[in-house]
Design a protein around this nucleic acid. Structure first.
Lengths: 207, 207
DNA sequence: GCGTTTACCTAACCGTGGTTAGGCTCGCGT
DNA sequence: ACGCGAGCCTAACCACGGTTAGGTAAACGC
């Protein structure tokens, strides 16, 4: 470490560049669709030449893969620990809903890409991304099951409820826009009630 | 009309062929993604040569457009009339949920394509498809508003509830498979309860 | 029956876009 | 101070795939 924290180290700058490419590409993919975006388009948006992208990524699909990773791994790492926190299933579920929606918002561009362009991933990459999603879904289902056992939730089928809740939440990134009537906070709290209190049936027992 | 109903007329056979192409293409698009499917692939699946497709469609995008049309126009024509039927908002909503899910099931392949490949449509076609979707959503929101006014539904925000309900329903086509535990009928009735009774809050007042 | 249309064919074109080859320059580590 | 590799460049390749041109055989309407 001959490098102070003021001037970013070489590896740090490289990482920054990679992230810049991924973010820029995600924005372009979201706007025009993965297939309609060429390497030269991504490069233009970053400010370099098309061929230079291959210094950072081995193929176009690797960039898409990086985008998809951020939207399936981050929620697992950041949101799921909330399900292990203290509190009743309903309280923990409310925490998850808030974190989930805020992540969808923070990464809304990447989420749009991740939801639509799965088919363009390599089979192996696709399998891995799917694995993350299935794991997340399983954890949500387990909390619902726990809430059902404790009597807080009243759904007949935890699996079905998990599908319903996750589809409801994930749909958010498809329609929410900053410049329309609804504020983020209003939607988040509205959804906490819709999901935890109503759909799952935990009356007024919220955190 | 020199043509009896036994031997299909020329125009009828042409229409059949078109529909066969659309159906086959939808299946292929759903499997491998619109961009990864060539005209020759579609033609192979139908049993003709690539160039022959241009006798029925002017461009590849026209085929995708036809797929998208069936999944946005059909629900408007077949499901929305149920909202004008007799009965309370909750009863009418329950009818819509059933019809909506059964349509998602009947046309599940086309729905998968319609949800994922929007970006590959011509701007004009995309606008038209979006129009159908927005109209459908508006009609659902209006029923929820009606149910709120009549006191059957207890949601604070009809617009938000409409988003939530439609995302929940449409997600169905993303995960339902015939060969797993759940039966279609079980899911449909489960979702009627989740949507109408729980999420919208119409206690036990179902049809 | 006979022209016309339908539906399909073979053959080829050609733009697009992912990818590669190879060279320049600067900053970093020793 | 010097070598090396990171980062970016220009130039070009080339395969894929949408599309067009032009022809043929059967089906249809009068």
């Amino acid at each position: 470490m001959t490098q102070g924290p003021l001037a970013p180290s070489r590896t740090a700058r490289t990482r920054l560049r990679r992230e810049e490419i991924v973010t820029t590409a995600a924005r372009t993919f979201a706007d025009r669709g993965y297939a309609h975006v060429g390497m030269r388009d991504i490069a233009d948006a970053v400010g370099i030449r098309g061929a230079s992208l291959y210094h950072h990524f081995a193929a176009k699909e690797e960039i898409l893969y990086a985008v998809c990773l951020t939207v399936t791994r981050e929620p697992c790492e950041e949101n799921l620990p909330l399900l292990d926190a203290a509190g009743t299933p309903a309280q923990r579920m409310a925490l998850l809903v808030r974190a989930h929606l805020r992540h969808l918002y923070r990464r809304r561009v990447e989420h749009l890409v991740g939801l639509h362009e799965m088919a363009s991933l390599t089979p192996e990459h696709r399998t891995e991304i799917d694995g993350h999603r299935r794991y997340y879904q399983r954890r949500v289902r387990d909390v619902i099951t726990a809430g059902t056992r404790s009597g807080e939730f009243t759904v007949p089928d935890a699996q079905l409820a998990a599908f319903a809740v996750l589809d409801m939440l994930n749909g958010f990134s498809g329609w929410f826009r900053d410049d329309r009537g609804l504020s983020l906070d209003a939607v988040v709290e509205g959804y906490v009630e819709l999901v935890v209190a109503r759909t799952l049936g935990a009356g007024g027992a919220l955190a």
